[in-house]
Write a protein that binds this DNA or RNA. Structure first.
Length: 701
DNA sequence: CGGCAATGCGCC
DNA sequence: AAACGGCGCATTGCCG
């Protein structure tokens, strides 16, 4: 990226909370002010050449202050004028401040995304922590964080408690400038070690920036109406809960558990499934929900007051409704929320969600399932919780189920969306060369029927094998439960899940032998080439670490590069594993004599819950990474085609893309064709791609 | 009071 | 012979 790159870092102060509202709403907030901007060339021969720009001094300031300011101001303008000059930031904060403050307030020219690089994106792509100081620690940088400077800078956003004044004294600001320049040092050091994005990914990042900056419209009126419903419906129930439990709030999970014990009720947890189980209502498994099948109606008689308390928790305990608060504050003045997606936030390259986390909206709940979006929105829009309960059902649950409808298309635009059907299961089978099952999916996609008239269906195919009945039909009411088992087998067993996990997760009320049979059926009969895929990838990767030479299996090439293990996918993109190490590990199974099994394995380090964790790289995991990575690349390929063909994207959710084209009549068929076109590599491995699409003016499932 | 870790719960 | 994984956010509870 050349010698003319400069690292840039702003320090700002604001009454807005950056973590809550995100960079774009923060930058636009009327109280947000730039304290300073440090910039420094990347050229190593110019280390220490950082300059710090700050807003112009007061009109009556001494001439020397003005002269000093003019010098830096001139340097910055000259830099911007040189179109070959590039800029580096950590995250999108600098771009947001530049757009909302430097351009309109201080008259600087806009900086197009093409002139930016992002160290956070690079760290993400190389599987390292995203936050700068943890990134530094992971890379073993010796740069010491200026904690005092940081604390001081943060304190400048708050008025002095006694005087009510904001501290902007010259000596205070001088300390902030010093901190800002030190921050840049850390970023530069990190960049030296990271290098740049791998080939092909810069254009993905540019697309990501376009989508994030385009934002998505939030229906503010709807959000406010939903908040009103939640508030008013919750008040009486919270009070009742408090009375029953002797002063507890329904959010206090641990204390509720304690209280239940005291009342003689022993539950393993307070998950949705468990509560539904003891309350006698079965967990409603809609066709496309793969979880919760382990739950069942437990033979427990509950005291009435305990039952009522659990009911209340079930009714109002949805954490998802907190998204309403975020939605209400994170939008820009044009009503759009920006910066909701983090490029490469997840290991194999998927996006992660930010701010209001648009990737985990609750799926339709009982209260709203099967009802039209118009009815749901029309009802909630009244803000009347009693009316809502009359039309839809429990108010909080109805709001939770309708949360995703708060995302709307701009006036004069329409949403069109599609996902990839069962894409991960298909990629596993295609990669493994399980041709008969791939053919099965292909025939199912084209709506073909069996000789007995039944539509071809992968889950039925699996069910027929598990239950030894060729007429197996999961749509028949009496086979509903078995249908779920079959579905979970197809979807869940591709990455080496063992019988114990399958049992506890999907069929806890069956004997464990049943789970064993299911796992065996998948591995030995339904998809016998898939375990070979696990073994093949595991062996190739292990040999690579052992010999330090590249090894290939199933079109995936493992190699050691710098401090990373890389996996080059059939799509040519590489996955990164930081700091691979050989280790001996005890396997979670015994040999036929019942003896422990030890093996040479390798580990790598990855970010997990804000920490660096050491992860064992076994075959099932490597397979999953490869498969998820390929699913992501398939989506990215479709995203480029969509963007180029008049479908501007506003959101992606792993295997789903949402666009917001102009006009009210949208070519849904064209959208679908683009989605299922596939790529050279997907055709090479014979992957059948299918997509279900919808069109509407509100986000939905 | 704020930072941090652990846990729960939502989605793919 | 054979280990599902990936996320973010809210809350709680502990620590200083």
């Amino acid at each position: 990226m050349g010698v003319t790159s400069h690292v840039m870092d702003f320090e700002t102060a604001s009454a807005a909370d950056l973590k809550v509202v995100g960079a774009w709403a923060y930058a636009e907030h009327p109280t947000t002010e730039v304290l300073c901007l440090s910039f420094e060339p990347l050229n190593p021969s110019m280390t220490g050449a950082a300059l710090t720009w700050y807003p112009p001094p007061a009109l009556d300031a001494p001439m020397e202050d003005w002269n000093r300011w003019r010098e830096v101001n001139g340097e910055l303008h000259a830099l911007l004028k040189d179109e070959s000059a590039m800029f580096v930031s950590h995250g999108d904060f600098e771009r947001a401040i530049w757009h909302h403050i430097m351009v309109p307030v201080f008259g600087f020219p806009p900086i197009p995304n093409k002139r930016w690089n992002d160290t956070m994106a690079i760290a993400a792509q190389k599987q390292l922590p995203l936050e700068l100081d943890m990134l530094g620690r992971a890379l073993g940088l010796r740069h010491e964080k200026d904690k005092e400077g940081r604390a001081l800078t943060i304190s400048l956003s708050k008025p002095n408690k006694k005087t009510g004044m904001l501290d902007r004294r010259p000596e205070t600001l001088a300390r902030v400038y010093q901190y800002c320049e030190s921050d840049i040092g850390e970023e530069r050091e990190a960049l030296d070690r990271l290098g740049w994005l791998q080939p092909g990914e810069r254009r993905v990042w540019l697309l990501d920036q376009k989508i994030n900056q385009r934002g998505i419209k939030i229906d503010r009126r709807y959000v406010l109406a939903c908040q009103k419903i939640v508030d008013e419906a919750t008040v009486p129930l919270a009070k009742e809960f408090e009375e029953i439990t002797g002063g507890l709030a329904f959010t206090q999970r641990d204390r509720i558990m304690g209280w239940l014990e005291k009342e003689g009720v022993h539950l393993p947890d307070l998950t949705k499934a468990t509560i539904a189980g003891v309350l006698g209502g079965t967990v409603d498994d809609s066709d496309d929900v793969a979880e919760d099948d382990g739950s069942e109606t437990w033979e427990i008689t509950l005291p009435e007051h305990v039952k009522r308390a659990l009911q209340i928790r079930q009714l109002v305990g949805s954490a998802a409704i907190k998204k309403l608060d975020r939605m209400a504050v994170c939008t820009n003045s044009d009503g759009r929320a920006r910066g909701l997606l983090q490029y490469h936030g997840a290991g194999p390259g998927r996006w992660a969600g930010r701010i209001l986390q648009p990737q985990n909206f609750p799926r339709p709940t009982d209260a709203v399932r099967g009802k039209s979006v118009d009815l749901i929105v029309g009802t909630l829009m009244t803000g009347d919780w009693e009316y809502t309960e009359m039309i839809l059902g429990p108010a909080v649950e109805a709001v939770a189920g309708g949360l995703r409808h708060a995302l709307i298309a701009e006036k004069g635009h329409t949403f069109v969306s599609g996902d990839f059907s069962t894409i991960e299961a298909r990629i596993v089978l295609a990669l493994a060369g399980q041709k008969d099952k791939i053919e099965l999916f292909r025939r199912a996609d084209s709506g073909e029927r069996l000789p007995n008239g039944l539509k071809i269906d992968a889950y039925n195919d699996m069910g027929a094998l598990i239950y030894g009945d060729p007429t197996f039909d999961r749509k028949k009411p009496e086979w509903q439960e078995q249908g779920q088992i079959a579905k979970n087998t197809v979807l869940g067993c591709g990455f080496g899940m063992g019988h114990a996990k399958f049992h506890s997760r999907y069929c806890a009320h069956q004997p464990v032998e049943f789970a064993k049979d299911v796992i065996d059926t998948y591995r030995n009969d339904w998809a016998p080439t898939v375990p070979d895929l696990w073994k093949g990838l595991e062996a190739a990767a292990l040999r690579t670490v052992q010999t330090r030479q590249p090894h290939e299996a199933y079109g995936v090439t493992y190699a050691l590069e710098g401090g990373w293990m890389t996996a080059r996918l059939p799509s040519t993109r590489k996955l990164y594993y930081w700091n691979p190490q050989l280790v001996k590990r005890l396997m979670p199974w015994q040999d036929r004599n019942g003896a422990d099994v030890w093996r040479e394995c390798w580990t790598y380090q990855a970010r997990k819950m804000g920490q660096i964790k050491t992860i064992d790289a076994y075959g099932g995991l490597l397979t999953e990474n490869v498969v998820q990575g390929l699913a992501r690349d398939l989506l990215v390929a479709a995203m480029f085609r969509l963007e180029e063909n008049g479908f501007p994207l506003v959101l992606t959710v792993h295997d789903e893309a949402v666009a917001e084209p102009m006009g009210s009549s949208v070519d849904e068929k064209a959208f679908r064709e683009i989605m299922i076109e596939g790529t050279a590599w997907s055709r090479e491995i014979g992957l059948p791609v299918n997509s279900e699409t919808w069109v509407g003016d509100r986000y939905r499932k």
